[in-house]
Nucleic acid binder design. Structure first.
Length: 569
RNA sequence: GCGCCCGUAGCUCAGCCCGGAUAGAGUAACUGACUACGAAUCAGGAGGCCGCAGGUUCAAAUCCUGCCGGGCGCACCA
């Protein structure tokens, strides 16, 4: 498509007396396939030439009448637009050959030239259960990780574990009051979670519990043996539980640098801020006024001397720059923390770090119940594990019904079930809140991962039946792909590279996800109108190449969303 | 009170960054297609003051301003 545009630029520039680049910027894709493949709008020219846009388009059409290029076969003025139609043969050959040759690398580029991109994602809070709320950061972050890697960046996944903070004071207090070691061993995350909830219930009536919790956290910060041993115990048990979920989702991190990792740097960071002269004491606490920037003040140290979340984030940002010298640093964290990151980045800027401009908060909306928001403290939460299990179970039931002879039912059910959960989080614009609805989670029809996986499985089935020998590259047969469904499918396939780039630039995997739905849809249209196996040998060969390219685009795309496409389901 | 985000078909959402041709999907309800390469599919009609009101423009779902509705946040949590 890019080559087509460039060619048009060269042809059009002299005719309209504009620079090629300007022409290229104006070119757009028409809303209807009937209107051609690339359109040149004549509105901007109308002023300059003092003629109606339609007359200009007409004029250009006359000048180009009967002419054609390598990638376009004719032009057609239509209202204020001059529309170009592609030459299917050269275009299709170009696209399909490229996919054939590059295989699982199709769509990948070296745009990033190996530059480091740190991606802070998932980052659960130790001792809290892994709820569906956390899946958004995990799944969106991991997809961005894969997308950046496909573009030649060196993605560095960082799991910034919430393994420090007042919640540990609360847990220690709760465990000392009500805890039993045996129950802790059975199901540590669940048990710690129940203690956490109980703590908040009790603290409503007994505010002194909160004071106890603060003082235990203070002890932890100053290295108190007992506090540290509780903390280590809780942390180890939680990490073991998270590891299972990450394994299941096929997710790994380069670094598990939790908040505690930055403890030894905090004094240094606080000193740095004080040297800059931007901090001041207020009611015993150390704060920084950000009023000139229209932001509320930031507190770096509480009056009891303990540090806060942002103190550790400040240290972490500096550490990441020093360690990884990132080109960009992404924080895939909920939208409710937008202010926090505005303050953090402003602080970095005030400290004179010009790279603060390369730090980006990638926010996303929250998952809510119909009745209101989820709350860990109140115990109103849906566990991720339960969601995954039920989705896989449902997929398994459907397979049992539709494909009872399938060999690897478990494998397929896992791929489809997990794919559904992932896709549900990836296919909509990040920033919107999602209403949690079991019916939607367990629905595998329409715009879902299963729709894409099903198209993939059908293709695999056809290729299996044709026999692998028939699938080989042949320049000569591509010209036989001339039906509307075939051409449209090829045009859609060709978009993968630009969609991957779009996703990276906008930090929205949803662009890629929705594109894959389009590909599957166009394939289905082809499938219902163009038989492969029963066609004449030459056409059969050409169509096999076409569906094989489609299969490749689907797996390449899905893999960047972290979704597996089984060959049968 | 102040700041940020969201508002498009009954429901869930694309499109908005970068303004252009009749505003698109899915889903629900209705109609049709398995003696067809897998019906988790496809085809069809139906369904819209693009929250409201101004403004900019030859042209606004898209840009600007105000308002309304919802969400989130705003010094000792993360």
């Amino acid at each position: 498509m890019q080559k087509l545009k460039e060619e048009i630029g060269v042809v059009l520039a002299p005719l309209v007396e504009m620079e090629e680049k300007l022409v290229l910027d104006l070119l757009e894709v028409p809303p209807e396939p009937d209107y051609g493949d690339i359109a040149f709008p004549c509105f901007t020219l109308a002023k300059k030439m003092k003629k109606s846009p339609a007359a200009i388009a007409e004029d250009l059409g006359n000048k180009l009448a009967g002419k054609q290029g390598l990638y376009w076969k004719n032009t057609e003025p239509r209202g204020p637009y001059l529309n170009f139609y592609i030459a299917p043969e050269t275009y299709s050959t170009e696209v399909l050959k490229k996919v054939w040759e590059e295989q699982d690398k199709f769509g990948h580029t070296n745009l990033g030239e190996g530059a480091n991109v740190t991606i802070d994602y998932s980052s659960p809070n130790i001792a809290k259960p892994f709820g569906v709320g956390h899946i958004r950061s995990t799944v969106i972050g991991h997809s961005l990780y894969l997308i950046f890697r496909a573009l030649g960046y060196n993605s560095i996944g960082i799991n910034h574990l919430g393994d420090w903070g007042t919640q540990f004071g609360k847990l220690i207090v709760a465990f000392k009051l009500w805890g039993e070691e045996s129950k802790l061993k059975d199901d540590p995350v669940d048990y710690l979670y129940r203690l956490y909830v109980k703590f908040h219930q009790e603290a409503d009536d007994k505010p002194e519990l909160d004071d106890d919790a603060r003082s235990w956290f203070k002890k932890l910060e100053s290295g108190d043996k007992e506090a540290v041993s509780y903390w280590e115990h809780f942390k180890r048990l939680s990490l073991e539980a998270y590891a299972e979920i990450y394994d299941r989702l096929g997710i790994g991190f380069e670094h598990y640098h939790g908040e505690s990792h930055y403890n030894q740097m905090l004094d240094q960071v606080v000193n740095l801020v004080q040297e800059k002269g931007i901090a001041k004491e207020s009611e015993g606490a150390l704060i920084i006024e950000l009023e000139p920037y229209n932001l509320p003040p930031v507190m770096l140290r509480k009056k009891d001397g303990a540090t806060l979340y942002i103190t550790r984030d400040l240290a972490a940002a500096i550490y990441r720059k020093e360690t990884f010298n990132f080109a960009r640093s992404l924080y895939v964290v909920g939208a409710e923390q937008t202010l926090h990151f505005q303050q953090l980045f402003k602080l970095l800027e005030l400290l004179g770090f010009t790279w603060a401009a390369n730090c980006v908060h990638v926010p996303f909306g929250m998952i809510r119940f119909k009745e209101g928001r989820m709350s860990t403290r109140a115990g109103k939460i849906v566990l991720l594990e339960e969601v995954l299990d039920r989705a896989v179970e449902m997929a398994r039931a459907i397979i049992e019904e539709k494909n009872p002879d399938l060999q690897d039912k478990d494998g397929a059910a896992e791929a489809v079930g997990l794919g559904a959960v992932r896709f549900g989080d990836l296919s909509n614009d990040r920033v919107k809140n999602i209403e949690f609805d079991w019916e939607k989670v367990l629905d595998f029809s329409g715009e879902t991962a299963a729709y894409i996986q099903y198209a993939h499985a059908r293709i695999c089935s056809i290729i299996r039946k044709a026999g692998p020998d028939l699938l080989s590259w042949d320049d000569k047969v591509i010209a036989l792909l001339e039906k509307e469904e075939e051409i449209t499918l090829i045009k859609t396939l060709a978009m993968l590279p630009e969609k991957i780039i779009d996703s990276a630039e906008s930090l929205k995997p949803s662009i890629l996800a929705r594109y894959l739905i389009d590909v599957a849809r166009e394939f289905n249209r082809f499938y219902h109108n163009c038989p492969v196996l029963t066609s004449d040998p030459e056409i059969k060969k050409a169509r096999l190449l076409l569906i094989n390219a489609t299969r490749q685009i689907l797996t390449n795309g899905l893999s960047l969303l972290g979704i597996v496409a089984p060959e049968e389901m």
